[in-house]
């Protein structure tokens, strides 16, 4: 691998980290503002114009809070858990393609023009990689709950693990229809297969199962049993304070971003503008900056949906969550696979 390639990859990684961390900070503000509007309040609007500097103030506050480690906690694991949570959330973004790419010679720095993809790594097992990393994210939550040496934390951690294992199955099965149609696990190929028609139309059942399961995977309301306040205080992060608490928080919002970009690239046509006939003749090689804008716009819409649902629906009971996962979503996902493969083979 030549050094220029490594350099370009590093720049991409830095860019994605910067963008995602900023987005996470402003998602917290968006969450509070939107919830305020839904509940007919104003929300935080004092710090800066429209409260735009509120995330900065929140960050400063969290840094200066006292960092408490419970006396009989397992110190190493207690410190590691939030970091693990956040890292497993953010490295899944490495394979998400936000656009086609463009050719450049970096202002004459390179000898011949190279094609730069809007994606950090285009690996053969792209989708499997996302799910593999996603399956590791259980550990952060479980360990945080266990290492705190507190009953509420342990209950939250166990609930979270049970919920994530249960919903990983429908989540993984619901995308198989998409993979069958696209014939590839590369996210770039899957998006390109949607140039004619978004997969949300032939895969409406898979889309619905994926959407509901990703709400459960991100531990968001109506599935936020791991941190249900009236029952178990704050669940797995009850004992955490200061930046460690903030990292759990950031992990949750990063999970939302990953889930949204997966929904967009698997079902909502990725960087294609229209549901039918993608760019209807606009030359996206020439206007290479348009696809990323479209992709990010769609991700914002799904993120808004996440926040909207949270402040609209009440919380499920624990047995209801398990019933929904195993007795409704799982069979639906299996039916979706059987129907899709039958259509592909026989028609």
């Amino acid at each position: 691998m030549p050094w220029s390639e490594i350099g370009i990859s590093l720049v991409k990684i830095a860019l994605v980290l910067f963008l995602v961390l900023t987005l996470v900070a402003y998602l917290t503000l968006a969450e509070r503002r939107i919830s305020a509007f839904i509940q007919d309040r104003l929300g935080p609007n004092r710090v800066g114009p429209f409260g735009l500097l509120q995330p900065l103030a929140d960050g400063l506050k969290l840094i200066f809070k006292e960092d408490i480690i419970p006396e009989r906690a397992n110190k190493i694991l207690y410190v590691m858990a939030p970091a693990f949570s956040f890292i497993t959330a953010i490295i899944a973004l490495a394979v998400i393609p936000i656009g086609g790419g463009f050719s450049t010679s970096l202002f004459g720095l390179l000898k011949e023009p190279t094609f730069i993809k809007f994606q950090i790594a285009d690996i053969n097992v792209g989708l499997l990689y996302v799910f593999a990393i996603g399956s590791l994210s259980v550990y952060g939550v479980v360990l945080g709950g266990w290492a705190s040496n507190s009953k509420y934390s342990l209950l939250g951690g166990l609930r979270s693990a049970a919920q994530m294992i249960s919903y990983e199955l429908p989540l993984g099965l619901s995308i198989l229809g998409v993979v069958l149609i696209a014939g590839s696990l590369k996210l770039g190929d899957i998006v390109q297969a949607q140039a004619k028609l978004w997969f949300v139309f032939p895969q409406i059942l898979g889309f619905l199962v994926f959407l509901v399961s990703s709400f459960a995977e991100t531990n968001r309301l109506p599935f936020d049993l791991p941190e249900a306040e009236p029952e178990i205080v704050a669940g797995y992060h009850t004992e955490y304070s200061s930046m460690k608490f903030a990292m759990f928080f950031m992990a949750e919002y990063t999970h939302m971003i990953v889930a949204s970009s997966l929904i967009v690239s698997l079902f909502l046509g990725g960087w294609y503008l229209l549901p039918y006939f993608g760019w209807f003749g606009i030359d996206i090689v020439k206007y290479w900056f348009l696809p990323p804008l479209v992709f990010i716009g769609k991700v914002f819409l799904i993120l808004f949906l996440f926040i909207w649902v949270r402040w609209t629906l009440p919380r499920f009971r624990y047995d209801q969550i398990m019933n929904l996962g195993w007795k409704v979503l799982f069979p639906l996902a299996v039916i979706n696979i059987i129907v899709t493969s039958a259509v592909i083979v026989f028609i």
Partner: peptide, 23 residues
Amino acid sequence: FIAAIQILVYAGAIMVLFIFTVM
């Protein structure tokens, strides 16, 4: 492929059950 499956199945699924049992 083997690498992804190794993480998905062993590290992600089976070891979670292990840790569940131990806890």
